[in-house]
């Protein structure tokens, strides 16, 4: 079947099978910033935005993206750079595998709730796992990013 959707603002058409997941479709077509982690809806590494909402690309069928706007981290480069600067300042990452998922989730938070409290930030990122840090440095980095520091 054919999937027609927008990826980072560009209209794209992909050949997909009905049981194919979005992460696989995107990676097969060169969007390697989309990372697969647990592949069972638990880690958030594969997060992309679907019509501006963070979703797990490992667990959503590609067919469900028909006509929708998909954003990968390639589509938010300026914001990702700002966030990675904050992460670096706070020492908030080590291996970096989870960063892409964090970047998209936190970007979404900034769009929807720029003045998020600590609790709201925690609630927003609870689906993004990091096995290197203890989340405290990330929390500080995210707060700095939301403040535009």
């Amino acid at each position: 079947m054919t999937l027609t959707c927008y990826v980072n603002g560009v209209l794209r058409t992909f050949d997909v099978t009905p049981d194919e997941y979005l992460a696989d479709t995107l990676r097969r077509n060169g969007f390697f910033s989309v990372r697969e982690g647990c592949n069972e809806s638990a880690c958030g590494a594969c997060t992309v935005l679907l019509d501006d909402k963070p979703v797990l690309s490992c667990s959503i069928l590609s067919a469900k993206a028909e006509g929708k706007h998909i954003t990968t981290v390639d589509g938010i480069q300026d914001e990702a750079k700002k966030l990675s600067h904050c992460f670096a300042e706070e020492g908030a990452d080590q291996c970096g595998y989870c960063n892409v998922g964090f970047a998209l989730t936190v970007y979404s938070l900034k769009k929807h709730n720029k003045n998020a409290t600590d609790e709201e930030i925690k609630e927003y990122i609870v689906g993004n796992l990091c096995r290197c840090t203890g989340y405290q440095s990330q929390l500080k980095a995210i707060k700095a990013y939301l403040k535009g520091e």
């Binding site: 809806s41 909402k53 963070p54 989730t105 990122i125 689906g127 993004n128």
Partner: peptide
Amino acid sequence: VMGLQFRNM
């Protein structure tokens, strides 16, 4: 229920 991304789906 799970994380935000999961609940968006």
